[in-house]
């Protein structure tokens, strides 16, 4: 159970990205966060693993206060939270294998891994993770030799290496060809079915309807909706995204 309580974030330049946002995420949910670009979705996801320090508010995960965790404790918490990014965030010049293995850095012996030495067990695990997303044959390619969809699958494999209880997916399909969206989200859905909680930000209404077990909507940093995906009809969608969103929505549907 993840509890987000009165979360606010104000950036040093004065931008208020989040305003007093509260909601709970039960274990095993596939929670989708929707909202316009700049509505605070990325900030919200990054506050959960404290890639961004919230200004106010608390986040509890199984009664542990993430917001109060000292650095070492925070790293132990982060180990259990996988993250998938819009831009994949792979090291382009490193091999796929190295990128996937790096997901394990929170667990392994710090000295040998600093030298780039990995246990056979970890390599095996990485190959399994790659196999799971269907690109085991690319293990020794350079990451930037892969297509966008394949790179995102490497991103998922890297998150899998963490043996996560929670996956944060920050617009995982926004940089991909729309036809690839389902293939990526199906992997996340598969993990969700195995009991991993997923918090995912998305743009397209059809994808929200298809995958979300519950939806939180943000508008200008304020939570404007929380409920099931079915409750979001076109009228509600327009309310969240504003009048100008019509064409975008029509195109995506």
């Amino acid at each position: 159970m993840l509890k987000i309580q009165n979360l606010s974030k104000t950036y040093p330049n004065g931008t208020q990205a989040l305003k007093n946002v509260s909601f709970d995420v039960k274990d095993g949910e596939f929670l989708v966060v929707i909202g316009l670009s700049g509505s605070g979705k990325s900030t919200l996801l990054r506050c959960i693993n404290r890639l961004i320090e919230p200004t106010e508010g608390k986040i509890f995960w199984d009664d542990v206060d993430i917001t109060a965790a000292p650095p070492a404790e925070l790293r132990r918490i982060r180990r259990k939270i996988g993250m998938v990014f819009q831009q994949f965030n792979l090291v382009k010049r490193s091999s796929v294998m190295t990128n996937v293995l790096s997901g394990r850095l929170g667990y392994v012996n710090p000295w040998t891994s600093l030298l780039g030495i990995w246990a056979q067990e970890d390599k095996q695990r990485a190959l399994q993770a790659l196999d799971r997303v269907g690109i085991a044959d690319k293990a020794y390619s350079r990451a930037d030799a892969l297509s966008g969809g394949q790179q995102q699958r490497v991103g998922i494999a890297r998150a899998l290496m963490q043996d996560p209880k929670l996956i944060l997916a920050d617009e995982p399909v926004a940089s991909l060809d729309p036809v690839l969206s389902h293939s990526i989200l199906q992997y996340l859905e598969g993990l969700n079915k195995e009991g991993i909680t997923v918090i995912c930000s998305l743009h397209f209404l059809d994808l929200v309807h298809r995958y979300a077990t519950r939806v939180v909507a943000l508008k200008d940093g304020v939570k404007v909706f929380e409920g099931s995906a079915k409750e979001i009809d076109r009228a509600k969608f327009k309310e969240i995204y504003g009048e100008e969103a019509q064409e975008v929505r029509a195109a995506s549907l």
């Binding site: 918490i77 982060r78 993250m83 965030n89 090291v91 790096s102 850095l105 710090p110 600093l114």
Partner: peptide, 14 residues
Amino acid sequence: PVEALQATGAPPLH
């Protein structure tokens, strides 16, 4: 990539 590695719980040097 730095952000991604921080998110995995990797130590700073790593």
